[in-house]
Design a protein around this nucleic acid. Structure first.
Lengths: 178, 178
DNA sequence: CTAAAGTTTCAAGAGATTTTGAAACCTCAA
DNA sequence: TTGAGGTTTCAAAATCTCTTGAAACTTTAG
């Protein structure tokens, strides 16, 4: 009844891997990354690239690329075994830290660039002939409102990242007009 | 120098629309939705579907579909003008409320389904022959850890949604082993 | 009821993204 | 230095997603 040495992972295991994969995808990463991470997370010991590919039915290349990106994000670590030549991979288990890293390095700068663009646009609106009636005024006001949101997002994120307590009040306030 | 009556929106305006579009895309919506919403948000009065298509260079169909989805999320509202036959659309300006709606109706249930799947997988692991040594024990433990995170996400989200104050402490605690 | 104006649908086409697998490339032992 | 064992690269193929635009459908004025 025991499956051959290097068979595909058990059913429930693959299901979890797929679910994590979908979640990660939703979060802006590629699905295979989530699948691999989950597989490693549920494995009691490091796995080789070949194992991973076999269990998840992925090609060598796909496994390699996904592992590279996971490593870049610190979600997976390479390890070696004494005599062995091949690399083994294990999952980073501090999920909290992983999330923080992504928030810090990706989300935060995304929001900052957004604020950047808004500010630039607002500038361009005044610059030209300084005139152009109050339609421009209106648009500038709206742009400033958007900028307010960008700032809010920035503070929420940096609070989350640095573990400070968060006050979501502003979200509601802004939600209630002005 | 004035562009023809129904020309494309001004440069900085299109830029903002594209930026919002990209942001929305990152957030799991389709890019055209963000572009349209931004255009409407910067317009002092409601616009017709044709205007939108012309300014953003989108086909009739694309505009129609994007507007339908935006409406479904409450991000855009239809309005009528006295004699006119055609529909006009305007942006919902309470961004905060929009965000809350998405968190409540989409993110929250996503996390719940995730927790669901994890719990189901854990059950399957014990069920079979009840035995299978302690490798199964290990996997069950890991699954429970993941479930802890799902719960954490659930509370963060519902706190955000209901405007309660948030304590990100748990994120760090879980990050620091166990 | 009919026709004009406007909107929605949806199959086909266009485009973008992901996956594959073979070749190039490392690294180490002998 | 050579060759075995492994890993990475990358162009081509397979997939998936989005956009288009014409046809069907709705609505309202006359």
């Amino acid at each position: 009844m025991t499956p051959p040495a290097s068979a595909a992972a058990s059913d429930p295991e693959l299901e979890v891997a797929d679910t994590v994969g979908r979640l990660m995808e939703f979060w802006g990463f590629k699905r295979p990354m989530g699948r691999i991470w989950a597989l490693l997370y549920l494995a009691p010991e490091a796995l080789g690239a070949a194992d991973i590919g076999e269990q998840l039915r992925m090609s060598t290349g796909a496994v390699s690329m996904a592992l590279a990106e996971l490593t870049k994000w610190g979600a997976v670590k390479k390890t070696w075994r004494p005599g062995e030549r091949r690399d083994y991979y294990e999952a980073e288990t501090s999920i909290g830290r992983l999330i923080q890293k992504v928030l810090r390095e990706r989300e935060l700068s995304l929001v900052q660039e957004f604020a950047e663009t808004l500010a630039a646009a607002e500038r361009k609106f005044s610059e030209p002939g300084a005139s152009e009636e109050d339609l421009v005024q209106f648009k500038r006001t709206r742009l400033r409102e958007l900028q307010g949101f960008a700032k809010l997002g920035e503070s929420l994120l940096s609070a989350l990242v640095s573990g400070k307590s968060i006050d979501p009040g502003p979200l509601l306030k802004v939600a209630e007009r002005r």
